[in-house]
């Protein structure tokens, strides 16, 4: 195997290593998820890209690999590669080749793929058979921070056990203490409380504003309601008119809110929250006007203007 395919070759730091009496050559390799081809507009020049079954690890002898273009000189579709991957011997079948000059962005840097082996980033692993691989894959995917107060998830312990077993594992664990976790949770609680307070204030302002407005309209329309009642309307009809008016105001506001929320955050379940808040405001805004209508003195509605 030419050295140019070795990990660290360009930096002059590509050295073979021995394990259990066998010599290994560290090749440039990258795990890719299923959507990497569509996300970055990468096509396979020859052969096939990964299918969804290729991301399931249940047999280490039947795996697929897509090779960079410079590998074409040495392999063809269907050839088999045997390698140690994730500290386990695995067999890969070449399923395709990338076109020349293919780049994939990784951590903000474009990586030249022509000398790389692309391996599926396993989304499902048979944990019964491949517990260690599953653990390492999990740690690889957790490339951000793990913040947990749950002592049962002992990340440093897991890393240490794997490191001891394989004598090497590049994974930094920054353990956050219980105090920091509590502080983070407290901070989150404070933010939630503040947001709730703002939410409550807005709801109260809306409900009170709407109620005062509707009450004013009811007062302005006493005479009109009297005429309707004389003409055969029931109080229920007047109530429907008032509820219709509140629904109209809330409906217009809700439509606008939904449009703005959809523009700001996209269409999703969060819009249900907007609808629920609108329904709550509608229900609260109806209370006082309904009581007022119920207590209307019908006989006083149409007074003689003497």
């Amino acid at each position: 195997m030419p050295e140019k395919f070795g990990f660290g070759y360009e930096e002059g730091a590509c050295e073979p290593y021995n394990r259990d009496g066998e010599q290994f050559f560290p090749a440039k390799c990258i795990q890719v998820s299923g959507n990497v081809f569509t996300e970055f507009g990468i096509s396979v020049e020859e052969g096939q890209a990964f299918s969804s079954e290729d991301f399931v690890l249940d047999n280490t002898d039947k795996l697929k690999a897509v090779l960079g273009n410079e590998y074409k000189e040495y392999f063809k579709i269907g050839d088999r590669l045997e390698a140690e991957y994730l500290f386990t011997r695995m067999k890969f079948e070449v399923s395709g080749f990338l076109p020349p000059n293919t780049y994939i962005p990784r951590n903000g840097v474009l990586v030249y793929m022509d000398r790389y082996i692309l391996i599926p980033a396993f989304s499902r692993i048979d944990t019964q058979r491949y517990y260690d691989i599953a653990s390492i894959a999990l740690l690889q995917q957790a490339n951000g921070q793990i913040v947990t107060a749950d002592k049962s998830l002992d990340v440093p312990g897991l890393v240490k056990a794997l490191s001891n077993k394989y004598n090497t594992l590049y994974f930094d664990v920054n353990k956050i203490g219980q105090k920091e976790i509590q502080r983070t949770i407290k901070l989150s609680d404070e933010i939630v409380k503040t947001l709730f307070l703002i939410f409550l204030t807005l709801v109260v302002f809306t409900v009170v504003g709407l109620t005062v407005n509707i009450q004013g309209r009811i007062r302005d329309n006493y005479y009109r309601y009297g005429v309707h009642l004389m003409s055969g309307a029931a109080l229920a009809n007047i109530t429907c008119q008032i509820i219709g008016l509140i629904m109209y105001i809330i409906g217009c506001s809700l439509a606008l809110s939904l449009v703005l929320a959809a523009i700001a955050t996209g269409i999703g379940m969060q819009l249900i929250v907007v609808i629920l808040v609108a329904l709550a405001i509608f229900a609260l805004s109806c209370i006082v006007p309904l009581i007022t209508i119920k207590r209307l003195d019908i006989s006083c509605l149409v007074r003689r203007k003497e």
């Binding site: 004389m230 029931a234 109080l235 229920a236 009809n237």
Partner: peptide, 9 residues
């Protein structure tokens, strides 16, 4: 009240 409204009507 509702029956009274019907009576008026």
């Amino acid at each position: 009240p509702n029956h009274l409204a019907e009576f008026r009507r």
